[in-house]
């Protein structure tokens, strides 16, 4: 890619990641901005970048950025959290307790040290999904599934913070590590929907097949 570099003695490629997913979670919706020094066809850029990346890191779409920064268009994420070995009824109970609490203080190690912050305020919605089929690789045990919409705040509230919150309010202790996947990020509407941040730049016509 004809990537642009910053000025100075140690030039860096102009790449910025908007609210990247934390380590140890899966994601189906990550966004980044790349500064280029030449105009290229976004569809071809998608193919070139996808070919260079590791299997499992798939580039789905590329658009020419319109005005405004990407970060300004991302204010919430939707997560799916699978909890193998947790009974959905038990999870439902914990979620009700979480929703009923005005504030749920949780603790996490951050770069600045141990911090306590509220995990409840940023949660827009939290639902136990009823599904008939167990997710892949889960056999022989019940598996409860959560879907959570979380607002972008500082410090950020991550899936593990929501789980810590469930432990705080209802002693929920999953027997095996739960698996979180980010399903979407973007602009949060009044209805609690998340709008794809690239939508505005797409001119109606989709570039790159999804």
């Amino acid at each position: 890619m004809p990537v642009a570099y910053s000025q100075g003695f140690t030039p860096h490629p102009k790449i910025s990641y908007a609210s990247a997913a934390p380590t140890g979670v899966a994601s189906e919706a990550e966004y980044l901005e790349i500064g280029l020094c030449e105009e290229v066809d976004p569809a071809e850029l998608r193919i070139a970048l996808d070919a260079a990346l590791s299997p499992g890191l798939d580039i789905l779409d590329a658009v020419v950025a319109g005005p405004g920064s990407l970060a300004d268009r991302i204010d919430a994420s939707r997560w799916r959290i699978e909890l193998p070995g947790v009974d959905p009824a038990v999870l439902r109970h914990a979620v009700s307790a979480f929703l009923a609490a005005p504030e749920v203080p949780v603790e996490r190690m951050t770069k600045q040290g141990r911090r306590v912050f509220d995990a409840r305020g940023a949660v827009v919605s939290i639902d136990v999904i009823s599904t008939t089929e167990a997710p892949s690789e889960v056999e022989g045990v019940p598996c409860a599934i959560l879907e959570v919409v979380v607002r972008q705040v500082t410090p950020s509230v991550r899936p593990d913070d929501v789980l810590s919150g469930l432990r705080v309010v209802a002693d929920l202790a999953p027997p095996v590590p739960p698996r979180a996947t980010r399903l979407a990020q973007g602009t949060l509407t009044a209805q609690g929907e998340i709008v794809d941040p690239l939508e505005a730049d797409r001119d109606g016509a989709a570039i790159g097949e999804r």
Binding site: M1, P2, E38, V40, D41, E44, L45, I47, A48, D50, A51, A52, D58
Partner: peptide
């Protein structure tokens, strides 16, 4: 070399 370097076969 300018511009994009496209993969030889864009199978993905």
């Amino acid at each position: 070399v300018r511009g994009l370097r496209m993969p030889a076969t864009s199978s993905r």
